[in-house]
Amino acid sequence: MNRITARLAGLQEKKEKALALFITAGFPNLHDTPSIILEAENGGADLVEIGMPFSDPLADGPVIQHSSARALRNGVTLKHIFRQAGELRRHSEIPIILMGYMNPILSYGLERFLAHAGESGVDGLILPEVPLEETPRFASQIRRHELAQILMVTPTTPLSRQRMIDQASTGFLYCVSATGVTGKRSKHPDFGYVGRVKQRAKKNPVLVGFGIRNREDVRRFSSVSDGVIVGSACIEFLEKNGKRNFGRWVRSLKQA
C-alpha cells in the first residue's frame, strides 16, 4: 500500500487527525530540507509536502513566492530535490509528496521525472495548476509509477464535480479552505463548507489546506476533516527562527 494511504488509515484507526507540512525545497538554505523535515517528524508531523520551486507560482501567495525565489537563488533544481527526498527516505518512512508546477517537470521530461521520483522514495504528487480536465494526460503514467495524484476541491467546485474529483484523486482529497492563493486567510473561515466536502468524500480522506496558521486553526479545521496542511506558516517560522525549535512548534500544532 502507498505510504500516504497507509499512514492516513493508521491515523484514522487511532482516531487521530493528520498534520501535513509544506516545506519549500532548498529553503532557507540549499541543503536544509532533509533536516528540517526530520525535525518536523520528531515534532509529530505525519506527512510532508516538498515544494518544487518555480519562477512563476500562480497558486501561491507572497510567503511561498518569496521562499521559492530564494530557493532558486540558492540554486535548487529537481536533481537536488530527488537527492534530498532519497536522503530523507533513508532515515524515515514519512510519506513524501512533491508539490509544484508543470513547466519544470515537462522540461525535465515527465517520464524521467516520475521514474526519479519513484526511485527517491516519493509517494505522491500535488500539481495545483492541473485541474481534473487535464489529469488524463498524465494519469496513466503517474499510476504506472505507483505515485498518488492528489487533487483539489475548492469553495467554487460544484457538487457533481467534487464527486468526480474525489473519484480521480488518490492518497487523499485536498480541500482548499477558501478561494485564493496559499497563505491567504479567509476572514470568515467556512467550516460548514469543509464539513460538507468531508461528508461527500466517499473515497478519500480529506485534508484541509491554505491559510492554516496556528493551533486554533488546526483544531477547528481538523474537527470537521481528517487533518490539515500547514504551509506558509511553516515558511514564516523558518524565515524568522531558522530550524531552531521548529520541532517544538510542530509539536504544539500536532497537540492542538
Binding site: L58, A59, M102, P128, E129, V130, P131, L132, E133, E134, L151, M152, V153, T154, P155, T156, T157, P158, R161, I165, V176, T179, G180
Partner: peptide, 19 residues
C-alpha cells in the same frame, strides 16, 4: 477542450474552473 493541436488547454487552479 481548448486545444490548438498540442497547445492551449486549461492549466489553472481548480478555483478558476467554474468561472
Amino acid at each position: 477542450r481548448g486545444y490548438y493541436g498540442a497547445y492551449g488547454g486549461r492549466f489553472v487552479p481548480e478555483t478558476l474552473i467554474a468561472s
